[in-house]
Amino acid sequence: MDVVLGFVGDGFTIIATDAGQTRSIMRIKADEDKIPELDEYKIMGCAGDAGDRTHFAEFVAKNLKLYELRNDTALTTAEAAAWTRKALADALRRKPWQVNTLIGGYDEVDGASLYFMDYLAAMAKVPFGAHGYGAYFTYGLMDRMWRPNMSEDEILAILDACIAELQTRFMVSMPAFFVKKVDASGVTVLRSINSFDDERARVGDDEAAAASTN
């Protein structure tokens, strides 16, 4: 049920995920960061099995680091995405990872870029993308609103329209999202949720407060 959204703008890539960790019909936690930073200039929005998600992201990140140590140079986003795709494809018929990913990155060769990859290791370079049920609700908006070389505010306007649509029409509640940006100066966290200092993240608190006053 995880939602992952991604957009390429003018010199940056933005990836957003919902903040929920669910098991069956139960939400376990509501401040889960599903956009691990693979290295200084790469982020990966992940949807899928919680354990696989974490394990796969760490596996990729450590291998990128290993390449960097061995060769004194980091992979470009395109190279890292190709390697990640192959790792997923090689594992597919042995011990598959159940993860759908959007890989965003910035490098000097290609600038900002975004790669869509599903758990079957099908990969495409895209200007925007979404995974899971969220894709059904948001691709129409992205098709209509996305233009090349948009500013950060313009991209965030598309993202907010997508989130509003999900919160209106999607059966699953998604009260909060993580949003990260990667550009020439690295990764920036645009929106995050910390249940210890952000009251809004405490799912059910509003209801509990309402119940106690009644």
């Binding site: 060769n71 395109a78 190279e79 190709a82 192959k86």
Partner: peptide
């Protein structure tokens, strides 16, 4: 090339 879709750097 199969792994990274790019040609191998010469030194590697």
């Amino acid at each position: 090339l199969f792994s990274y879709r790019k040609d191998i750097p010469v030194e590697q």
